[in-house]
Write a protein that binds this DNA or RNA. Structure first.
Length: 846
RNA sequence: GGGCGCUUAGCUCAGCUGGCUAGAGCACCUCCCUUACAAGGAGGGGGUCGGGGGUUCAAGUCCCUCAGCGCCCACCA
């Protein structure tokens, strides 16, 4: 006996089912299943910084529909969640929220309590205190994140939740790093690196972005001896003149042939620098001759390295000109000029240099304003500088073509959804110019588990690493002591120091399949889930997260981390701009979940093609809600026949009903194929359109027969087919509308629909019957509408003229048509030209 | 400069390996309270499928080309 409410409603479904699913363990991962029976998802751990926005709802829903489909296909779905609470966003928030700053040199203060209000000026605290504040602050956000994801109906197994800040992920990061180090895949190097002067940290190539900035071209005079003509050089960065180490021109540039190998003297500072040929110099740009500074841009680094030039650094890590000039600036006037620059930001220094050049007459004309692209750290506010520093790197093929070829090949073995996304991986890997810089000069993150010996004279020996045993991890070298030492030896001659840096957040994220699968900690589990099936993620982090995961997985396990990568698009606001926190146009999802229900919002998300940027569209949510309501109502109606008791499928003998099953079988097949290809949107579209046609046409057609107007057998056939269709549609819609589908399922089935098997149908009916019947019914409806009659109004005569094949279909549906259309006489006439003539009964109102 | 994607009704978008008069939803108009649903239903108006060329019996769909928009990569004097 079906338990159908008198007045079906969507109200309260979310709260009820969230609790029910939890209580019944509907989404628990069955870890007894073998790898071949598991579908494992490498879920993106969202960055915990504030709140989730509608973009999260969008992409996480995509993944969830696939998880639900695979679960219904009988797979044990490994669907963990993680919180990425590492990294700069958290640091920034903690600094601002409490008004504190981390000073790693300070000891831990167990009694420290954060101020109630942001403290100004910021209070300096030790790294461990700072970390504790980070944990406190993210904890509240994480509760809200979990609540939202549950509300949205994500079928995550929350038992596998992890936080990147926790010991286990930290240990995974440190172990993997030490193994990289031992195998030579990680190394340390002192070299010019891109440097953010505000965050005071090195940044990686993958975190750069170009911004178009106004600048100016300055024409400078470099002097040649013996009264020869001056050498003119155009530069946008005259403030780096003191850092000039050479002048380069293209080897074929006729203008400079005689100068190659000679020296010229720099303006203002009178330093002799060589004029050298190099392929990268462009005869078309400026005067064709460029000054090489240490370092103005990445090309300078190349010239410096390949031409074996000295270093004359003048910009410090704070972005200001260093107090002391390079040794090459020896002349007293030159040193006096330099003194006017010292301590200034590069921007201020530029103004001073221009002034000085005007005084000496070495600036030709005025600076000519231009716009040019400048490299920024993607989270930064000021242009990057290049400074020499000691950093950790992981080899990624950027300096090794054989390795690069391996990573390119791995990218080709990966299945991409949509397929064209592989181009982004290809062009990124092909264009790498250096290894992956993983160290950051930050206080909060996974520390490098390395100490260095301090020699007897007090210098740190960076060439020797003291590393802990794996089973001692995780460690913090600024708090923990290397084996064989005591805390009193920290920083002392003959003692040790800890590596002060932390790993970039991607260095941890790149291990997400290992962290999620509990590598090291639970080998049995890991063997059942790795390599994973699916990596869902946004397309703009292919170069960071996706690529780095491929790299780490290759090093640690010699395999691709997953078989399939599913890239989601962006949410655009109505002005077609990407919704992003930094753009200030994000939409908070809660209000929409309240208004349209989780199912409605999920419908909107699932309507967007995989990988395609999609406009935020409230209208789609409204449609989703209507779909959910329709499912309630049609379920109620179908379950009203035979008191909701199941009727054996064997009763389905009527040609109209058999045609329905054939249509259903096709829809199931299309949805299945689409889902297998990760195309949730197509699965939804096929299902939805078949569902509406079922409700509006088929149900109307067989309604009368279901009530019994054509006898018990005909009624049983209709009822049984309606039940099959209902069961099928409920399950096809379950991945998209998990709440309402489980509600209607609960009216007549045992257990959650989300643990029910995905529908399978074999049918051999002739669905031309439905096409023919639909055509006639449509004509009848049209006639009634045009006559402004009710759909119930009687029809005296319908004459159907069509080829015999179509007539056979109409004949098969005769009783249903007569009933559905209130037709007194239905006459069929064979004809080449299909035509339906409807004669309405006299209007009783007239 | 190289690459990728997009351009179909007023709006948001489907249209998969070329094939019946190009579809859906929203919006708009008309009608219908029919006992699953008025939070519904029936019907209608509206498109030379970005431009041009080509292949084909047949092109929104394939090829070439141009244009606009977006993105990725590279350049950055």
């Amino acid at each position: 006996m079906a338990r159908v409410p008198d007045k079906p409603t969507l109200e309260g479904l979310e709260r009820r089912f969230i609790a029910e699913w939890d209580a019944n363990g509907v989404y628990l991962f069955d870890r007894t299943r073998q790898r071949s029976e598991v579908f494992a998802i490498d879920t993106p751990p969202p960055t915990v910084s504030g709140s989730l926005h509608v973009g999260h709802v969008f992409s996480y829903t995509h993944t969830d529909t696939i998880a639900r489909y695979q679960r219904m296909r009988g797979k044990a779905v490994f669907y963990p969640m993680g919180w990425d609470d590492n990294g700069l966003p958290t640091i920034r928030r903690v600094q601002n929220y409490y008004g504190v700053r981390c000073d790693p040199s300070l000891p831990y203060d167990p009694t420290f309590q954060p101020p109630d209000e942001p403290h100004s000026p910021p209070i300096d605290v030790g790294r461990r205190n700072f970390t504790e504040l980070c944990r406190q602050l993210v904890a509240a956000d994480e509760v809200a994140f979990e609540e939202l994801f549950r509300r949205l109906g994500l079928s995550v197994d929350w038992n596998y939740l992890y936080k990147t800040i926790d010991d286990r992920p930290t240990k995974v990061s440190q172990v993997a790093f030490l193994r990289n180090l031992a195998r030579g895949e990680a190394y340390q190097q002192e070299a010019p690196t891109l440097w953010d002067v505000d965050f005071r940290t090195a940044v990686a190539q993958a975190e750069l972005e170009d911004r178009e900035l106004p600048g100016a071209s300055h024409l400078l005079t470099f002097h040649r001896g013996d009264g020869a003509d001056d050498l003119m050089i155009d530069t946008t960065r005259p403030e780096l003149l003191a850092a000039c180490v050479a002048v380069v021109a293209h080897p074929d540039d006729k203008r400079y042939q005689t100068l190659f190998g000679t020296d010229v003297t720099t303006p203002l500072f009178g330093v002799n620098v060589p004029v050298l040929p190099h392929e990268l110099a462009d005869a078309e740009k400026g005067t064709g001759a460029a000054m090489v500074c240490t370092f103005g841009d990445l090309t300078d680094v190349t010239w410096w390295r390949e031409l074996d030039l000295p270093i004359r650094a003048i910009v410090g890590r704070d972005g200001r000109v260093l107090a002391e000039p390079p040794g090459a600036i020896s002349d007293a006037d030159a040193r006096a000029r330099y003194a006017r620059l010292a301590g200034k930001t590069t921007k201020q220094a530029q103004a001073v240099v221009v002034e000085l050049l005007r005084e000496t007459g070495e600036l030709v004309g005025d600076p000519r304003p231009l716009k040019h692209p400048v490299k920024f750290y993607e989270r930064g506010d000021r242009p990057l500088e290049i400074v020499t520093s000691r950093q950790w790197y992981i080899r990624n093929g950027g300096r090794d073509d054989k390795l690069r070829a391996i990573f390119l090949e791995l990218g080709r073995e990966l299945t991409w959804h949509p397929e064209f996304m592989r181009h982004r991986y290809e062009s990124w890997v092909a264009g790498l110019t250096g290894d992956w810089l993983i160290s950051r000069q930050q206080q909060f993150g996974v520390p490098f588990p390395v100490w260095y010996p301090v020699t007897a004279d007090g210098t740190v020996d960076h060439d020797r690493h003291i590393v802990p045993a794996e089973d001692a991890l995780p460690i913090d070298p600024s708090a923990d002591i290397p084996p064989g030492y005591t805390e009193s030896q920290r920083g002392q001659p003959g003692g040790f120091v800890g590596d002060p840096d932390v790993m970039d957040t991607w260095a941890t994220s790149s291990l997400s399949p290992l962290v999620g699968g509990r590598w090291l900690d639970d080998d049995d589990l890991f063997a059942r889930v790795f390599p994973m099936n699916m990596r869902p993620q946004a397309h703009e982090i292919i170069r960071t997260w996706l690529f780095s995961t491929v790299v780490r997985s290759y090093y640690e396990l010699g395999a691709l981390p997953w078989s399939d990568a599913a890239l989601s698009g962006w949410i655009l606001d109505p002005d077609r701009k990407k919704m992003a926190k930094s753009k200030g146009n994000v939409v908070t999802p809660i209000a929409y979940l309240d208004t349209y229900g989780s199912d409605g919002v999920r419908y909107w998300a699932a309507s967007a093609r995989p990988g395609v940027d999609s406009t935020f569209d409230e209208g789609q949510m409204k449609i989703g809600r209507k779909l959910a309501i329709k499912l309630l109502n049609v379920s109620k109606f179908v379950l009203g026949f035979n008191h909701g008791e199941p009727v054996a499928e064997a009763a389905i003998t009527h040609p109209v009903d058999r045609a329905l099953l054939t249509r259903l079988a096709r829809v199931v097949s299309e949805a299945t194929t689409a889902f297998d290809a990760f195309d949730y949107a197509r699965a939804l579209e096929r299902t939805e359109s078949a569902f509406w046609s079922f409700c509006d046409d088929h149900v109307e057609l067989v309604k009368g027969r279901s009530y019994g107007v054509a006898g018990d057998n005909a009624a049983a056939s209709a009822t049984a087919s309606l039940q099959v269709a209902l069961s099928t549609f409920q399950r096809l819609l379950a991945p998209f509308l998990p709440f309402v589908s489980d509600e209607v399922w609960s009216w007549w089935q045992e257990g959650s629909i989300h643990n029910a098997p995905w529908p399978r149908l074999d049918a051999d009916g002739d669905d031309a019957v439905l096409a023919a019947a639909g055509w006639v019914l449509g004509a009848v409806r049209k006639a009634k509408t045009e006559a402004k009659r009710s759909m119930r109004s009687p029809v005296e005569l319908v004459v159907v003229r069509a080829p015999s094949a179509s007539l056979a279909g109409v004949e098969a549906a005769r009783t249903d048509l007569i009933e559905a259309g209130s037709i007194a006489t239905l006459r069929l006439e064979e004809s080449e030209e299909p035509e339906t003539i409807v004669t309405l009964a006299a209007d009783p109102a007239l």
